[in-house]
Design a protein around this nucleic acid. Structure first.
Lengths: 231, 231
DNA sequence: TTATATCGTCATAAAACTGTGATCTTGCCG
DNA sequence: CGGCAAGATCACAGTTTTATGACGATATAA
């Protein structure tokens, strides 16, 4: 299970702790220190889950929560809040504001990982679903097979990961640099044009002949899986 | 009789008790502590039977039961629930939700083993079947023999276990490290490349000459038994 | 003990995949 | 319509991954 997680936390040691453990678990982590950048980071790339420290120096946790919940595109991102023991009362308010779960500091890391797993499973089934479907396209993670209209589609590893990522986030547009981050890996030093080539190869394999193209090019924007594909 | 059994139980002493006795009986045991990992473990390798403690800390037993019954691939895995004497009412609900049998804690181990045997025989004859079949391939667990198109195939112990594991989970792709875990054992300190060599040997024995290869290589992914083999 | 089988590792060959630059095509602006 | 910028496509060389054969070590059977 691999997810994109946004950590909003101003204490650096805890930032490190979280980043280290979440990355070890295979998640992708971005950290925002003061809640100010938060909305920008979210707009930049929609995270699958937000870990939110309740006591921030600048903007308050409750405020972040409200902002996230206010926008339609981010409304259903699950939020786990981290609170100090003394903030018991706050916690209740937090849940009322829309957090999905909470942990009391100091928290146990395995406990945190378990909660994350559970929440992702519950709210973001695509993240763990064995099969991703769209129209006549079917991607199976367990067998690593892709079929289009009951015909086998043989993809290379990179093409498979690329398609998986796009199908998991249907409709969302990803810039070339975002795709390099998620599909190739944070430290990939690869030219952005390479993404074009792989999208091209993926398309060729997917659309043998005259089928409708499920991948949408957004000029200057990037690529997306066409959410209207198959309807 | 050898089956893959998933134990969902949060009390460690009972975990140990179950693991020890079931493994002594020849079964392969995996333990999930809190019910959270359960669905993932099931996806990882379909168990032949689930032993489910009714009182779990996180997700409730009834919930696990429902989840298992909700998915088509897992719907017919038999479930035995473990309840405390006082949970009479729960028991009824459990059976209503789809458990196949129950035991009251504290239970006698021979009794448990007997129930397991009986249930597996009754509900899942395939799981304990002496034979695994696919196309012209036939693997007999009792005699440890493998035949291909009525021809004897002489496999080494490791090759046999490898083939058994892959055939039991047809279609699913296993990474080299997963295969080392399940086929070689959790603590095997063996190079991942060794898996290649054994797959190669297995293939050579299986495909004498020009037969179709039942094992599928998935680049960067691992190996799988080709679920289309024989059709 | 000797003979036989199995196992893990290494070296090398073969195959598949990847990134890049050149070139062609398309869309968009005035 | 012309010109430019962005995207699509192609061929190719380098790299990564897998397949295979050989060997010594260890275990098993006779």
């Amino acid at each position: 299970m691999t997810a994109s997680i946004l950590v909003i936390e101003d204490e650096e040691p805890i930032q490190m702790l979280l980043r280290y453990n979440l990355e070890a678990e295979g998640h992708r982590v971005r950290v925002s220190a003061d809640g100010e950048d938060t909305m920008m980071l979210i707009g930049d790339e929609r995270p699958d889950l937000i870990l939110l420290d309740w006591m921030l120096s600048g903007i308050s946790g409750i405020e972040v929560c409200r902002l996230v919940r206010a926008r339609a595109e981010t409304r259903d991102i699950p939020i786990i809040m981290l609170t100090a023991r003394s903030e018991e009362a706050e916690r209740v308010r937090g849940l009322a504001t829309g957090a999905d779960d909470y942990l009391i500091k100091p928290f146990s890391v395995p406990e945190l990982l378990a909660r994350i797993k559970s929440i992702l499973r519950r709210l973001n089934p695509d993240a763990v679903a064995e099969e991703l479907k769209a129209g006549d396209l079917l991607l199976n993670r367990a067998t690593k097979r892709v079929m289009r209209a009951n015909r086998d589609v043989n993809l290379s590893p990179t093409e498979f990961r690329l398609l998986e990522h796009l199908m998991r986030n249907q409709g969302r547009v990803y810039s070339r640099s975002q795709l390099l981050d998620t599909v190739w890996g944070r430290d990939a030093e690869v030219d952005e044009r390479t993404v074009d080539v792989h999208v091209g190869r993926l398309r060729k394999m997917l659309n043998r002949g005259k089928d409708i193209d499920p991948i949408r090019t957004v000029r200057t924007g990037g690529y997306a899986f066409n959410e209207r594909f198959g309807s």
